[in-house]
Each structure stands twice: as C-alpha cells, then as structure tokens.
Nucleic acid binder design. Structure first.
Lengths: 201, 201
DNA sequence: TTCATGATATATCATTATGATATATCGAAT
DNA sequence: ATTCGATATATCATAATGATATATCATGAA
C-alpha cells in the first residue's frame, strides 16, 4: 500500500529525514494506524526525489550529514490529490484474535488467558501514552489529528473493557454459547483425538 | 507474518481447499482481524505438504479435482505450539486515519467528510453482517470465536459513534483544539503557500 | 440444447514491503 | 578516554500482495 503517499504526508508538516519519518511510526500516535520499515523508507525517498516529488535541503544546521527532505510543488500537488482519493478499508493483522477464534474447546484456557493479560498491559501502555499526548515531545498537533487521537482513545478503552470481560468469562468458564449447526463439534473432536493418538503410537 | 500457522489454524476445524481458506478471510468474521492472498496461500500449502504438516485427502466426493488439505499429527503439534506462543501486537494500516491526521487546516473539509461517510457505510455493512452471525452459512462456531465476534461488535459500534461525532464536529466546525507548542502552524502555512504559488508561476 | 454467467478452484509472477543486519557518527555520562 | 544509547543511512534476503491466467462447475435464460 502506498508508502510513497504516506512519506509525502509526513513531509507536508516539516522537512524530515528518513529516520524522523520512521520515528513518527514508532511509539507515536501515527503508529496506531500505520507502519513502515527502513527497507521501504530509504529506497522510496530516493525514488520520490528522482521523480521530482521531493528534494534534499542543503541548509543543515551545524553541517551534520543528514538528508532533510522537503516537498516540491509537484510533491504538494501529489499529496493533495492523494488526500482527495477515497481511502481503502483498513487492513488488520491481529494474531491474538486469530488464536482466540481458533482455540479448541478441549485445550487449556490458561495460556489463552495469559495472552489476553499481556495484551491488556500493552493496550494500557499505549492508552496512557495517547492520553498524555500531546505533551510527549510534539511540537504541533492539528485539530484533525486531535480527532484521530480521540478515536484511538475510545477504541483502546473499549478494548480494555472487552479484555477484562473476556478474561473474567474464561476464568469463570462463563462463556457465550458456541453454535453447532451441523454437528461439526463431534467430528472436530474425533479428528483431533485420532491425530493425537496416532502421534503417540 | 506467519501465514503458515494461520493455514494450520483454519485447517484445524475441517479439511479445506486453498479456495475455502481464502473465503474465510473474505466477507467472513476472520476478515476482521486477518487477511491472506492466493499468492501466499497456494505456495505455502505446497510447502506445508512437502514439510509434512498437511496432506492431500484423496476421498473427494464425485471426483472433483480439488485438493482438500488435512492436518498431519505433526501439523496438529505445530498448530498447538503456535497457539501457546505469545501473539505479536496487531498491525493496522488505515489510510483514512493517515489522511485525517495529515489534513491541513486550510484544506476543504467536505472531501474529508465524504471519506468519513463512506467509511460509515462500510462499517455499518460489516456490523450488520457480524450481528447476523452465525446464520451466514456457518456450520460451526466455537465459544471462543463467539468471544472474538463480540469484540468486533463492540469495536464497530464504537467506530460508528465516533464517525458520527467526527462528521458532526467537522460540519459544525466545532473541532477539538489543535495545539501549537512551538509556533509551527504559521511555518507550515507559509511553506504550503510558497509551494502553491511557485507552482502557479 | 446451447450458451452465458458467476462461483469454484489452482497457480504464477512482477511488484511491494518487511525485518534483519551492517555501518558510522553524535552526545552525554562515567 | 571510553562506553553507550540515540541518531542516521543503506541494503538485502525473505515474505506478502495484488493482478492475472486458466479451467471447470452449476445455473438459469434464450
């Protein structure tokens, strides 16, 4: 997905190095809804410069050898065209939910509860960061990003509430009912037992 | 991220073809927290078979030429080991939030509102699918996946509430305050105007 | 009966992105 | 002086995506 446009978007606020851009997506608000690796950033910055969307600023205080990139007029245009385009539906990859929903009924819950507890801690950490924002080293925050942060807050709080409920339900063994419309549960259990037994032989 | 284990996880319920597996991540509950493309699925299934984690079932009713894959005992073991491993923090890529939080204050809001309205419709659609679950062609649903679905419901409902608030705030121009700690707003505006002007010349 | 169409099914491939690694400098503390 | 963590750029093997090709099956319409 369009790493290039994301780079232009970050550069639209102030000239930045590849390292600065990466930092935006680490332990900062932007990491809640986007990510990028150096392996994408540096080659793409090079490509964007070759194509005339950005250029390297030479005026670098104290002559440090870092490459500050800035948008060209063409880059501004491309950025604004991208903003106007309808955004794709989000892509999510969450292994916890993959594991949760493929857990089998005869497997030990306690490990699953451990996974949920770990996620609770991680989510709490991010939530408290989000709540302390913008005091975390930000020099500027638009009212639009304030709106995005507000959503992150709502979402993270809902997630923590759900985790608490889920842990409680698992510990009390008071889970919502599974539904077995075609008698598959027995088939699944039988397959599992057979596989496990044939492994022991 | 581990496509292989996800394949084993899906196959742990019943033997499936590559196409079946892909379907699980399209218009179904699993698509809320995971995705895979055919370009990953088929090569990985081949690899998993070569490595002895899965095998091809020959008993295929009516002799249709489809490859039903089933877990081997080694595959079951690998699947359960994976379940026990601590899941990574989720990866999210949401262009809407990227656009929202890099919108500039002097840009036309109406397009942004349009993006939000489109997302509202998409989210509503998924929510009504989730609410009708498990009547949507599912033959079996564990109590763990019921838990995951419950979270999806909570999350999607919160998202819709936030979208409504956000649209309203944008329409009324009653947005949360932006914060300008280092006088960056003027700098940003000046840069933008200069770039746009130099483009017109 | 034929034909069109959409769903089922497998597979490959160019492009893109990730994650790990290498390398080097800078600033601050010990 | 030196160590150490942060800053900074870059590359590369591996992995994943998204598009495309190909073919069959089920169905209903002409």
């Amino acid at each position: 997905m369009s790493v290039e446009h994301t780079l232009l978007a970050v550069l639209s606020f102030w000239p930045s190095t590849g390292y600065d851009i990466k930092s935006e997506f680490e332990h900062k608000a932007a990491s809640l809804y986007w990510g990028m690796s150096y392996g994408s950033i540096y080659p793409k910055l090079k490509k964007l410069e070759e194509e005339g969307f950005i250029y390297t600023l030479e005026q670098d205080e104290e002559g440090r050898r870092r490459k500050l990139y800035e948008l060209t007029p063409k880059g501004w245009e491309e950025f604004e065209n991208w903003l106007r385009m309808s955004p794709a539906y989000p892509v999510v990859k969450d292994e916890l939910f993959m594991k949760l929903s493929t857990w089998h009924e005869d497997m030990d819950y306690s490990i699953l509860i451990g996974h949920l507890q770990k996620r609770r801690v991680e989510t709490k950490d991010i939530l408290s960061f989000v709540k302390e924002w913008p005091s975390n080293g930000y020099s500027f925050v638009s009212k639009f990003s304030a709106l995005a942060i507000r959503f992150a807050e709502i979402r993270l709080e809902a997630e923590i509430r759900w985790i608490d409920e889920a842990i409680h339900a698992l510990q009390m063994d008071d889970l919502p009912e599974g539904q077995d419309l075609n008698g598959n549960v027995d088939k699944i259990l039988t397959r599992r037992r057979q596989a496990i037994n044939s492994n022991k032989e």
